[in-house]
């Protein structure tokens, strides 16, 4: 059969695949997951950028029938599209935890997730533990962290401190983590990161009245939130998934109907129809996971949880 090439970029690798012309998004996605050995596939997606807007490859539609960039090979980013409510309960496989760790770390370093200087230092110390293992002053001599990107640029600029002073600060915490294995260190990182206000939120500029893009809409694992444009930390309003009846769009307008029929219907405009489609897609996916978490685990999940427990116990013994 005729094929076309795609390049898939994960948080730590690049892969090339030959796809059959008739393949749906799901065929490519499944192949990537199999190649990575990833079973917790429901958090992830294949992302691309078209005309400056982020989009996710649709699973049920043929790859070539989607509005993907015309390049050879076509590039996709394999990324977490949805986030768990509690990392420690939901992320079971080590590979899943590792991919989340790398993605969230990048978001924090790129300042897409705001984080106080104190917390960034603590997070950096867990990242160092994950990378270098236990601290050994004979081996980890001053300057050993110089090459590593560990703190957001904003934090580095905020203080009059040399790189060596930062290294000392991070190392003081790092030395405390002795005995923590790589996967544990990454999980500790995620447990702290998940409490940051901007973690796991997809933000979209919206306007309630035309010509005033004065608000932000945030979609996350718990629901939909509305923020002032200059405050991404605390929403003015929140709609939990369990309190929403219906979400719909028509062109650029989007409507959220609360379950409580007496409550006010929330209407707003996004920048383009494409964005509304993306918002609805994220709402459906997050709501689906929200329902799944509140049901009895499937046999597959039960097995994975048992396996993860065994694996953890085995590692602890080895360690």
């Amino acid at each position: 059969p005729k094929t076309f090439k795609v390049k898939v970029i994960t948080m730590d690798a690049e892969m090339e695949f030959s796809c059959e012309m008739k393949w749906k998004g799901k065929d490519l996605f499944d192949l990537v997951c199999r190649t990575l050995g990833l079973r917790e596939t429901w958090f992830f997606g294949l992302q691309y950028t078209i005309k400056g807007v982020c989009a996710w490859l649709k699973m049920e539609k043929k790859v070539l029938e989607q509005e993907i960039p015309k390049e050879d090979p076509t590039q996709f980013r394999f990324l977490a599209k949805f986030y768990p409510e509690k990392v420690e309960e939901e992320l079971l496989q080590e590979i899943t935890q590792h991919l989340f760790f790398l993605q969230v770390k990048k978001q924090i370093l790129d300042e897409e997730i705001h984080c106080s200087p104190e917390v960034t230092v603590l997070l950096a110390s867990y990242a160092v533990q994950a990378k270098y293992g236990d601290y050994d002053p004979n081996f980890h001599k001053p300057g050993f962290l110089i090459q590593d990107e560990l703190l957001p640029k904003r934090v580095l600029k905020q203080y009059q401190m040399t790189v060596h002073m930062w290294e000392e600060k991070i190392t003081a915490w790092y030395a405390e983590h002795r005995g923590i294995a790589r996967d544990e260190a990454e999980m500790n990182y995620l447990k702290i990161a998940q409490d940051l206000a901007m973690y796991g939120v997809n933000y979209f500029p919206i306007e309630q009245n035309k010509n005033h893009r004065d608000l932000l809409l945030g979609v996350d694992a718990k629901g939909i939130h509305v923020y002032s444009i200059n405050n991404r930390f605390s929403p003015n309003r929140s709609f939990e998934w369990s309190a929403i009846r219906n979400i719909s769009y028509s062109e650029k307008e989007l409507t959220i109907k609360p379950l409580d029929k007496k409550a006010e219907v929330f209407k707003f405009f996004s920048s383009q129809l494409k964005v509304n489609k993306l918002i609805l897609q994220l709402c459906i996916g997050n709501h689906d996971l929200f329902m799944k978490r509140r049901r009895v685990d499937s046999i597959e999940i039960q097995q994975m949880k048992a396996q993860a427990r065994e694996e953890k116990a085995r590692k602890k013994m080895e360690h």
Partner: peptide, 22 residues
């Protein structure tokens, strides 16, 4: 529970989605 009426319109009923999964 997800309906696309035309290419520029879409609707998702969370209530129906919940009912269908119970």
């Amino acid at each position: 529970y997800f309906a696309r009426k035309a290419n520029h319109k879409g609707s998702y009923s969370l209530v129906d989605a919940l009912k269908s999964k119970v």
